[in-house]
Computed example of a mutant assay.
Amino acid sequence: MRGSMSRVVVVHGVGRQLDTAETLLAEVGSALRGGVALALRRDPTLGRLADGDIACAGYGDLYRQPGTRGEPYYRAEDVEPGFETELLEAWWREAARLDPRIPGPDNAGPHAAGPGPAARGAVGRLASRPLAVDRVRRALQALTRTRFFGAVSDRLLISDLKQVRRYFTEPELRAAVRARAAELITPETRVVVAHSLGSVVAYEALCALGPDRPPLNLVTLGSPLGLAGLVYDRLQPAPRQDGSGVWPAPVKEWTNLADRGDAVALVRELAPRFGPEVRDLLVDNGSEMHSMRAYLTAVETGTAIATGLAR
């Protein structure tokens, strides 16, 4: 298998259904190498990358609709009540918190609800579908006109919501996605780098591998793993009875990086959830708060990867 001896495995997030592992590698590889190069400028004793060291776990094709040309033309009416509506509102609330110029859920018009538990991981369901669709339109209008999601159309934002929801609600799809990551994590793997929903995929794949694998480092970027209710409480394995998350047995060091303006990484510190061993770092991605490329070119990310390679 190509990439089976790679020391760095990268797991992407949503919105990559037209990519393959090879096309991802062409984009991700240069960004990752750039971040590691910046880290080596600061500390030449860190580990270095060799040819063939990077492999990408591509799973976007599993989301492609057979016999169609690209994504369906989604509209506000296609956002389903429950998980999709709740996640959309959580993003909306966080974007408004980060930027006061964005009209948030609590001042979005006559149908706005009062402060709910959305930011805490659960959002009350709206009473009627017409009001719900109107609220979805307001959320989409707010998000797609902001610097957080400004480059994303309504159609693609809804597609992203559906991909996250499908991962958590369709067991066969979830298993197939996870398998794409697990098959690349070999005894030679030293670092797993995972972005956005990919951090959930990588986390669950690593937990399933068990403690008999050689230790490796986990680097999560823009991760939603700490979002209670919608993500954290749906993880496999589930959090313990005391509320703490299970530590993936093969992971020796875990570095979690988040841009302070990343509205997808609503909970930017994972240590309170998974233990003080998680090293939480803030990075500055400029105007590309949630971009995988921006995260990978950060010197902090390069340092975390090169530290794992140095072992």
Rank of each mutant, 00 (worst) to 15 (best):
S244A: 13
G286C: 13
R125I: 10
G243S: 15
V200H: 04
G116K: 01
A179L: 12
H290A: 05
E277L: 11
V79I: 04
P237A: 02
D43H: 00
E94T: 05
R48N: 02
A179I: 10
W91T: 02
L235A: 06
T85Q: 15
G70N: 12
N217Y: 03
E300K: 09
Y295R: 04
F168N: 05
R137T: 15
Y295T: 03
A249D: 02
A127Y: 08
S244K: 10
R268G: 14
V152K: 04
D259A: 09
E94I: 02
L87T: 04
L221A: 12
A182Y: 07
D106M: 01
D212A: 09
D242R: 08
T68D: 15
R129H: 15
L309D: 03
V123C: 01
V267G: 00
I158A: 05
A175Q: 12
E77Y: 12
Y74S: 04
D134M: 15
Q236L: 14
A310N: 04
H195L: 14
L156D: 13
E86S: 13
L197Y: 05
V193K: 01
E71D: 14
P66R: 14
S196G: 04
G121T: 01
V283G: 10
A132H: 09
R260T: 14
A39V: 05
R147E: 14
E86F: 07
T255G: 01
E80N: 04
L197R: 03
L221N: 08
H290M: 06
R174Q: 13
Y63I: 09
E86P: 09
I158Y: 07
L216Y: 08
A39H: 07
L46I: 02
F148Y: 13
E188W: 00
D233C: 03
S30M: 10
E84H: 02
L18K: 09
E253S: 05
Q141C: 05
E288C: 07
G226I: 03
T85N: 15
P250V: 01
E77N: 09
T307G: 09
I102A: 04
L131A: 11
A21R: 07
A202K: 06
F274H: 12
R293T: 15
G58I: 10
V14F: 03
V219K: 00
E94P: 02
R69Y: 14
P44K: 00
L46G: 01
P239G: 05
P276I: 08
A176R: 14
F148M: 07
D106H: 00
A132D: 12
G261K: 02
Y59M: 05
L227K: 04
Y63Q: 13
E288Q: 12
R147S: 12
D262G: 11
S159I: 00
F149L: 02
M289P: 06
L131W: 10
V200G: 02
S199M: 10
L157W: 03
D212C: 01
A175I: 08
